[in-house]
């Protein structure tokens, strides 16, 4: 079990990351509000456009933060500067994992909650809720996958490759879900129908996300050097 040798420094590193992405996050937040406003115009075209933009925004936030906060740190020689600070490789790794998760999970949760609120409050069938939740969890899982790649390899190439693969898989995942009778037959239900299939998929998605994060944490912990 890892013990934080320098929690104050970890906190400072997280704060440093927050300062670095503050402007980007403010832009995403403004974008999120505008997309919600677009969906709030309550026409089918604007609603669907808003839903697609919302998914895009979730992907973009994840991709940008993984590249900006992890990969670029090595490319811009910031990592070499970090090595001169009184922090261990583990401290640095924990700070990176913590900052990235925090900076992604907060907007992710807000956007998912926003979408669910739109569905609950609009004439859209509540039956689509399981689909929306499953797709959102898949996007979170994808993010964790390329964050793990970025943290473990610091390679732009590998991280971009995982991003491309997970984004391609997202389309396949949505089509796969829509072909499942347990999912598509309940899409037009007035209430969210969580059946054994959708619950199993949700559990699998959450489980895989936790597994990816734990594996990343364990592998990070074993690192003996920054590089």
């Amino acid at each position: 079990m890892h013990t934080f040798s320098n929690s104050q420094m970890i906190k400072l590193l997280i704060l440093k990351d927050w300062q670095l992405v503050k402007k980007s996050l403010a832009a995403y937040l403004a974008g999120g509000v505008l997309i919600i406003g677009l969906m709030g115009m309550a026409t089918p075209l604007l609603f669907n456009t808003g839903a697609i933009l919302m998914i895009t925004l979730m992907i973009v936030i994840g991709a940008r933060s993984a590249i900006e906060l992890v990969v670029n740190e090595k490319k811009d020689q910031t990592l070499t500067f970090m090595m001169s600070l009184p922090v261990t490789a583990q401290d640095y790794a924990w700070a990176k994992l913590g900052a990235n998760l925090l900076l992604y999970l907060v907007p992710w949760l807000l956007l998912v909650a926003g979408m669910l609120l739109v569905i609950v409050s609009s004439p859209v069938y509540n039956g689509v809720i399981p689909l929306v939740v499953l797709v959102s969890v898949f996007i979170l899982l994808s993010y964790c996958c390329y964050l793990a790649t970025a943290l473990l390899t610091y390679s732009e190439g590998y991280t971009t490759a995982v991003m491309i693969v997970t984004n391609l898989l997202l389309n396949g995942f949505i089509i796969w879900l829509l072909r499942m009778p347990a999912i598509h037959l309940t899409l037009e239900a007035p209430t969210a129908s969580w059946n054994s299939t959708s619950l199993l998929l949700l559990a699998a998605g959450v489980g895989l996300t936790v597994l990816v994060l734990l594996t990343t944490a364990v592998l990070q912990n074993r690192k003996t050097s920054f590089l």
Binding site: V33, G37, L38, M39, G40, M41, A42, S122
Partner: peptide, 10 residues
């Protein structure tokens, strides 16, 4: 409506 509308935000 329970959702803010773009026109009103603007």
């Amino acid at each position: 409506w329970i959702f803010p509308a773009l026109w009103a935000l603007w």
